[in-house]
Simulated scan of single mutants.
Amino acid sequence: MSNGIVIIYCHPYQKSFTHAVLESVQENLSNHNTPYKTINLYQDKFEPIYDLEELRIFSTGGTHDPLVEKYLNLLKSADSVIFITPIWWNDLPGMLKGFINKVMKEGDGLSHTVTKYGIKGGLTNIKHAYVLTSSTSPTFYFKIFMGNGIQKIFINQTLKQIGIKKRTWINFGRISNSTKLRRQKYLSRIRAYQFKAN
Rank of each mutant, 00 (worst) to 15 (best):
T63L: 12
K143S: 11
L22I: 00
L181M: 11
H64Y: 10
F83L: 09
N148V: 01
T115S: 13
Y13Q: 03
T18L: 00
S16E: 02
L74E: 11
N28R: 04
P12C: 00
L123I: 05
Y193K: 14
F195A: 12
I57D: 11
I175L: 14
H32F: 11
I100R: 10
G61W: 01
K152M: 03
S2N: 15
T113M: 06
N40C: 03
G61A: 03
T136L: 05
L29F: 08
I87E: 06
G149T: 00
H112T: 01
Q43I: 00
D65Q: 05
N3M: 09
K166I: 09
K37Q: 15
K127F: 06
D44Q: 00
T124A: 03
N28E: 03
I150S: 04
F58R: 13
S77K: 15
S137T: 12
Q151Y: 08
I126S: 12
E23H: 09
F195D: 09
D65H: 10
E47M: 12
V25W: 08
R182H: 07
A129H: 15
H128M: 15
F46C: 12
K185D: 02
E69F: 07
H128I: 14
N198M: 09
R189S: 13
L41T: 02
K37W: 06
G147T: 03
Q26F: 02
D65V: 02
S80R: 10
T124Q: 11
R167I: 02
I164F: 05
V21N: 12
I87Y: 06
F172I: 07
E69P: 13
I84L: 04
N33V: 05
S59D: 08
D65I: 00
G149M: 05
M95T: 12
P86Q: 06
Q151G: 06
L132I: 05
I5R: 15
L92E: 07
M95L: 02
K160S: 11
L187G: 14
G4Q: 13
S16K: 07
I119R: 07
G147W: 04
R189M: 14
P48M: 00
S80Q: 12
Y50F: 12
I175M: 05
Y36A: 04
H11S: 04
L41H: 08
T113F: 00
K166T: 14
S24Q: 07
K97E: 08
Y130Q: 13
L72H: 04
Y9D: 01
G163H: 09
V131A: 08
L75K: 12
K152C: 01
Y193E: 10
L41E: 05
L181K: 15
E47A: 05
R189D: 03
K160M: 02
T124G: 09
F145P: 10
F154Y: 11
S30R: 15
N177Y: 10
T115E: 11
P138Y: 10
T38P: 07
E23F: 00
